[in-house]
Nucleic acid binder design. Structure first.
Length: 210
DNA sequence: CACATGATCGCCT
DNA sequence: GGCGATCATGTGG
């Protein structure tokens, strides 16, 4: 099998929460149909979850970035670019868009807004349970590695009772910091837009503010 | 701590 | 043919 692609990667066992996501609750579709920066901010503190071979795995999101579609030089949909890879970004809010970067890492995004808009939120970092190293999910590539997220999930509906979901949980609200986005220096004026949101109290945030 | 570099390949021009 | 919404590792201060 020379061209075998890994398509069913197991999540890190330390993120397992059991056969049922007890204590976790669904979000309505309307959550994802709002202003993308607002969705990015509100995703901090929610849970990104995946089921693999009957077991659920989950991590608490602590860092996100908004990508504003056609007007945003940092976005894959800048100027309305429409290709096979990016097509999931034009689905209705609540879908997943995953891409491969640098040939070896994946980045997971939550699509926002109504269909055909092309905006999304990059999940940049998350936390595992007490005792797991803070680096385990710190950074978009590591987050995907730890949860076994690959391009096989691109286009998946997070609200279709499927194997990838965003959950909420009754917890105290996080203190949110805001900064420019990471790694988009090529994006002209857009590189300075304050579209990165992070939990000020989390050790798992990928970098200090800029 | 602050850089600097290499890895590795799908995507787009 | 060039490069990227990254990361691990290495060097030097």
């Amino acid at each position: 099998m020379k061209n075998a692609r890994k398509t069913d990667v197991a999540p890190d066992a330390r993120l397992a929460i059991g056969r049922e996501p007890t204590g976790f609750r669904e979000l309505p579709r309307s959550f994802f149909l709002r202003d993308t920066a607002a969705v990015a901010r509100d995703l901090v503190g929610l849970w990104f979850a995946r089921r693999h071979e009957g077991i659920w795995y989950a991590a608490r999101i602590v860092e996100t970035e908004a990508y504003l579609g056609s007007i945003d030089a940092a976005a894959h949909t800048w100027r309305g670019r429409r290709t096979t890879r990016v097509e999931p970004m034009y689905k209705v809010g609540g879908h997943l868009y995953v891409f491969l970067i640098y040939g070896m890492y994946h980045c997971a995004n939550v699509v926002t807004c109504p269909a055909e808009i092309g905006e999304a939120v990059l999940l940049r970092a998350a936390e595992g349970p007490q005792g797991t190293p803070s680096k385990l999910l710190s950074g978009p590539g590591r987050l995907c590695t730890a949860l076994g997220i690959t391009v096989a999930f691109s286009g998946a509906d997070l609200l279709a009772e499927g194997d990838v979901r965003i959950f909420r949980r009754s917890t105290s609200a996080a203190s949110i910091g805001v900064s420019a986005r990471i790694g988009v220096d090529y994006a002209g004026e857009a590189k300075d837009w304050p579209l990165r949101f992070f939990d000020l109290d989390s050790p798992a945030v990928s970098r200090k503010s800029r």
